[in-house]
Write a protein that binds this DNA or RNA. Structure first.
Lengths: 143, 143
DNA sequence: CCTCAATAGTCAGTCTTACTGACCAAATCC
DNA sequence: GGATTTGGTCAGTAAGACTGACTATTGAGG
């Protein structure tokens, strides 16, 4: 490829991080997490999230999201609790085991960010992150 | 998310481009291209490529790549020609119909690059692309 | 209040797109 | 010139996505 589109380079970088994280999580002994489960789990917030919200953000149907949450729940990574604000809905929250995995993932993510900063230098890295953040404004329909 | 990891932002951008391109291709009347077929087709080069190479670059097994090439061939997007340099191998090359789709895709990609340049400014865009290219050195095992 | 459209979620069934394992034929190594 | 590597296919299976139909709750209008 003579001059690859920025999007391809972005994809390559994102895929690299996903692989590094999933390897580390596997190495830490969590071998029952599939990539799809992990991607769904990555959407979790501390205050809980609805299945429908996971689906929107991950761009999958609510049925698919529901299956993934089932799997995560069965493996004790998350719990479903009733949403106090809406009796139709249930909130997906991290269970203790999920919080442990999250810690492992966060640690790898920070390590990669340091590696990238070392490679580009602090200044270029900051500019890079700022550009990504600005581009999100025109590429991310979910804020 | 308070401070999303750069990789998430990269993923969001890459996904946006893939969606824009696939929408345009669909709108141009090519409705028999699945996302997986398109991703495989995106690896094609003018001088032809081997199925095994597609597999390596797309990080899928050669069997999966072979199936996708079959589908692309059946839909007249590509052809398989014997590799003059190796009688075991066959080169996957774009067929006329494939070249038409490629034109549509390239057009959208250029349009998006212009939009991004408008949003960031030419200077920041250039720096952004340079940073992506540099990061590729440490994130892309296939050079 | 009371209907009724919208929303949160599930169930059932299907298709796409991966995977593993076994295998063949040509090329390359020693 | 036999053994190993490489390019690719065939067969079978599983993960993960989709559509469509359905239930229960919410919230808005009359």
């Amino acid at each position: 490829m003579a001059d690859p589109h920025p999007a391809l380079l972005m994809f390559i970088g994102a895929r690299y991080v996903e692989q590094r994280v999933s390897e580390a999580v596997l190495a830490a002994g969590y071998d029952d997490l599939t990539p799809a489960m992990a991607r769904a789990a990555a959407r979790l917030r501390d205050d809980g999230i609805r299945v429908t919200e996971i689906a929107e953000q991950a761009r999958i149907t609510k049925q698919s999201a529901s299956v993934l949450v089932d799997l995560l729940e069965r493996a004790s990574y998350v719990e479903r609790v009733p949403d106090p604000a809406d009796a139709r809905a249930r909130l997906v929250v991290l269970a203790p085991r999920g919080r442990e995995v999250q810690k492992v993932a966060r640690r790898v993510e920070r390590a990669i960010e340091r590696e990238w900063t070392r490679h580009l230098g602090a200044e270029r890295m900051a500019a890079f992150k700022a550009a990504l953040t600005d581009l999100r404004e025109i590429t991310d329909p979910y804020r």
